[in-house]
Amino acid sequence: MTQIFGHRGAAGTCPENTMVSFKAAFEAGADGIELDVQMSSDGQIVVIHDEKLDRTTNLKGFVKDFSYRELSKADASYKFADYAGHAPIPLLEEVLQWAASIPHFLVNIELKNGIIDYEGIEEKVIKIIRNFQMEKAAILSSFNHYSLAKCRELSEEIELGVLYSEGLYKPWEYAAKLKAGALHPHVYAVNRDIIVSAQARGISVRPFTVNNEAIMKELYEQNCSGFFTDYPEKARVLIPAT
């Protein structure tokens, strides 16, 4: 079964990485959501994609320079004016508390520590996952593969997804070295041979970010493990629930 992950929730129609967006993805029939985490100045794990607040909120500056109390007052409605005042930056705890109540719902947590080294972010995120007993429902991904290796040292049970954007030779072998159960390539860095070869070796393949309907259909026909999309409602229509 090809699983649909709402990329930053339902980011095509709602403010990305907000509870509004995550709930919309679930209501659209997504099998799970993808979100991004960074750390506030007081060590809280907050859900936001960019290192800086400028693009998606009414604040300016780096996430790392604000306390969560300050971040919680930000308006993260982004370009969706209808949600102004109703789309704050959530804590990872808030998202997992909600997701934990939904049977079989998956949460892909991307550690955004490729540019800023958030010391201890792996330990904090894994602790939160364990607090909500979501070890089997969570996936940890990152472009920082040193961070993924650290996550594996800290946890044997949580699945890891290797994020990459360009051609990687025999990526299933690389995933195996990291003890990762999944590859998360850019959609243009993957093809049928990679999907077949990886999945035959027990490595899931979930490309990002798939918004083109023709590509969605191709991935479904190839029995690809899953994909990330800004439009889970569109994907669900094309890929019927099983």
Rank of each mutant, 00 (worst) to 15 (best):
E16I: 10
E16T: 12
T18E: 08
M19N: 09
M19W: 08
V20K: 07
V20I: 15
V20F: 01
F22T: 11
F22D: 10
F22K: 08
A24R: 14
A24C: 04
A24N: 07
A24M: 08
A25Y: 07
A25C: 10
F26T: 01
F26S: 02
F26M: 05
E27F: 00
G29L: 09
G29H: 10
A30R: 11
I33V: 15
I33N: 06
I33K: 03
D36K: 07
D36M: 10
D36H: 14
V37R: 07
Q38D: 03
S40I: 07
S40Y: 05
S40C: 06
S41K: 15
D42V: 04
G43N: 12
G43S: 08
V46G: 08
V46K: 09
V46L: 11
V47E: 11
V47M: 06
D50P: 07
D54I: 05
R55E: 12
R55K: 15
T56N: 08
T57W: 05
L59R: 10
L59F: 15
L59M: 15
V63D: 02
V63Q: 08
V63P: 04
V63K: 07
K64N: 05
D65A: 13
D65R: 05
D65C: 11
F66I: 02
F66E: 00
F66L: 07
S67I: 04
Y68D: 06
Y68I: 06
Y68N: 03
R69S: 15
R69F: 05
R69M: 09
L71I: 08
S72M: 03
S72W: 02
K73E: 15
A74Q: 11
A74N: 12
D75A: 02
D75P: 01
K79T: 12
D82P: 01
Y83I: 01
A84D: 04
G85V: 11
G85R: 13
G85A: 09
A87K: 01
A87R: 03
P88Q: 09
I89A: 03
I89H: 00
L92D: 07
E93L: 02
E93T: 14
E93M: 05
E93F: 01
E94L: 06
V95A: 11
L96M: 12
Q97I: 02
W98Q: 09
W98T: 11
W98K: 12
A99P: 02
A100I: 00
S101H: 05
P103G: 05
H104L: 10
F105G: 06
L106W: 03
L106E: 06
L106A: 11
V107M: 07
V107K: 05
N108K: 05
N108L: 09
I109W: 04
